[in-house]
Simulated scan of single mutants.
Amino acid sequence: MPVSGDAATLALVLDLLGTFVFGLSGGTLAVRRGLDIIGVLVLSTAAALAGGMARDVLLGATPVAALADSRYLLAALVAGLAAFLGHPLVERLGKPVMVFDALGLGLFAVTGCRKALAYGMDPLPSLLLGVVTAAGGGVLRDLLVAEVPRVLRGEIYALAALLGAGVVVLGDGLGLPAAPVTLAGVGAAFLLRLVSVRRGWDAPRSPWS
């Protein structure tokens, strides 16, 4: 079932922000790898849109938002151009790919989960779709430059997305206001991802691996 009013507006704003941020992560990585302008835009677009498109296809929300609303594609392309033209400025932020990726992870985990809940999905599938939304763009971005995706490296990546989505599910179950719960979910995923990278935390591994 579709959402409306303030919740829909907040979801759209966060979805577009996540699209732009993930686009920056893809574009920045492409510039670092020495790709040309087309390569930068392709990587930016892939990183920005893949997760949301996968979410919408799985929900049956077609045509997917990234194709039905040109603002998504525009946000991805603007992010790619920003990375291409302003790379030195972006690099001054310090580890920009990781920072943008962490922020995009939190934004997409929350919006993906919230959209799934709005379409009547149960909490567990909604958590899964939050993770798919958050990780999908990063997976495709890394594969296109022949890197092992972060979600498979043992880093706290999918777990951070799961935390952000979990905050949304919990808040929704308790009937808490959508806006503060959404922002808390984004912050939780973002902070866990950043702290885990800084401290070198990894996801649990089998003792037999």
Rank of each mutant, 00 (worst) to 15 (best):
G137K: 10
V21A: 05
L17E: 07
L24M: 04
G34R: 06
A160T: 06
A11L: 15
G94T: 13
L85P: 11
L194Y: 13
D101E: 10
V167Q: 07
G86C: 15
S44V: 04
T28H: 02
D69N: 14
A135V: 15
L129C: 08
A66S: 06
R193H: 09
L191V: 15
A79K: 04
G166K: 05
P207I: 14
L103K: 08
G52I: 01
D15L: 06
L174P: 02
H87K: 11
I38A: 14
V195C: 09
A66H: 01
T9F: 10
P180N: 07
D69V: 08
L194R: 15
A61D: 14
R55T: 02
D36S: 13
A158R: 10
L73W: 07
G106T: 02
R205D: 12
A203W: 08
G86V: 13
L77A: 08
L176P: 04
E147S: 14
P125S: 08
A109Q: 03
L117Q: 13
M121H: 15
L58V: 08
D142S: 14
C113S: 12
V40C: 09
L103N: 03
T62M: 02
I37N: 07
L162P: 08
W208D: 15
V42Q: 06
M53R: 00
A203S: 14
